[in-house]
Amino acid sequence: MNPVDKRRREFLGGAAALAGAMIAPGVFLYDYAQAKAPGEPASGKVRWGMLVDTTKCESGCNDCVVACNTEHGLPEATRATDAQWIRKVELKDLRSGKAISAPVMCQHCAEPPCVDVCPTGASFKREDGIVLVDRHTCIGCRYCMMACPYNARSFVHEPTTGQKPDVPRGKGCVESCTLCVHKVDRGGTPSCVEACAAAGHEAILFGDLNDPQSEISRRIASVATTQLRADLRTDNGVRYRGL
């Protein structure tokens, strides 16, 4: 590497250093088998998804929500109109009294209704299945919020402050769970998954649904899981166990 390239690389944020150790000039060793190399586009060979195990999710625990807010610089939601990228839902079967607790966020559908209805193309699905809003193009019409069966999207009503460098957000756009795309692109894991594991619950599993060897695929192949509102045939990337 010539000195100019080296300096540029340092300038460009040290992401290469984060994602993998260089074992010889130009040869990198990645910690995560699925992680793409820096500078590579997202690949359609991968489909990112999550498995929420409601039998492990603890009622009253809010750690995933707090972690999401911290990661993305979201103020704590106090009003119905405040942004919520992930929320805890508590269900109770009235007859048996059986209670279930689970986080609900953007389900990263393979056939996302929000993408179908968006008049500007701002709502889109990446090659690797992550559904996002391109805020540069979003006009804030909120059609996608109407179309989403999971109430997963929020509109930003107020001017924003304290944005994170990796998570730009501003008034007048719609936003939702990005599956922590800025971390996933660098070989990381969504913050809610990490927080849940740190709290000792390990109720959320993240991984590549297309890779039969991934932990998430093996789990889905061995235990009964469901997609929310599977009748809509949106083919969600987020699945639930124990509903």
């Binding site: 540029r8 460009l12 820096p38 586009p41 997202a42």
Partner: peptide, 16 residues
């Protein structure tokens, strides 16, 4: 490139 195709780090990035 970054938002739609996931190319990170971009050579010309505002954060950079």
């Amino acid at each position: 490139d970054t938002v739609r195709r996931g190319i990170r780090p971009a050579k010309h990035s505002l954060a950079g």
